[in-house]
Design a protein around this nucleic acid. Structure first.
Length: 185
DNA sequence: CTATCGATTGTCT
DNA sequence: GACAATCGATAGA
């Protein structure tokens, strides 16, 4: 198995495969973060994907090189983080089990309970201070740090959350039994 | 516990 | 001008 997930080889694959393999990885932004426990895959020919209708100013990073960040503003107020895979595909980071910099997360989020810090893509964005400035940056360099799990964790699968098109695709993945996911599987 | 609704603004038609 | 890969508050069972 790979050691560093920032390797282009790891991300230059199907976003579905990458999304499953990211479960259990340790991810931080400027030292704040934890274990990735929930992801979703978005593909080029996927009606629910931002890349479905080709390149635009917003989704530019999705068509750039693999192993870079794609960041967008959701509903006018939530910054969401993706990892770019093959061109036009990406993995949305939906939930993290907080591990590093939890007091910083609490201050940013305005809540104390650990399970409310990063259980949802908007919450992850706020807890890790994700913003437009990080859009398109390489995952292998500061402020990002990503380390894959050395063991293979039990992965749960389900349909994606919060979309209105291609709703039946089973491209949501989670750490089985985790209480830090955004919703039960 | 579930259901509903308002917030808020970038993006695309 | 419509809509969105969400969240938090609130009301009710």
């Amino acid at each position: 198995m790979h050691r560093l997930t920032s390797d282009v080889d790891f991300f230059a694959r199907s976003a579905v495969q990458v999304a499953a393999d990211l479960i259990g990885a340790d991810f931080t932004v400027s030292g704040v973060g934890g274990l990735i426990v929930e992801t979703e895959a978005y593909l080029p020919d996927d009606a629910a994907s931002h890349s479905f209708s080709g390149t635009t100013a917003r989704n530019r990073a999705m068509f750039g090189p693999p192993a870079h960040a794609y960041i967008y503003l959701s509903y006018g107020l939530h910054w969401c983080l993706n990892f770019v895979c093959l061109p036009g595909s990406a993995v949305l980071i939906r939930a993290i089990e907080p591990k590093w910099g939890m007091d910083t997360m609490r201050a940013r989020r305005g809540v104390r309970e650990a399970r409310l810090l990063c259980s949802g893509p908007g919450r992850v964005g706020q807890a890790l201070a994700i913003s437009r400035e990080l859009d398109g940056l390489p995952l292998g360099e500061d402020p990002f740090r990503l380390t894959l799990s050395s063991t293979k964790p039990p992965v749960a699968t389900g349909i994606r959350v919060g979309i209105t098109k291609a709703v039946e695709q089973p491209w949501r993945f989670g750490l089985a039994g985790s209480s830090f996911v955004s919703r039960k599987f």
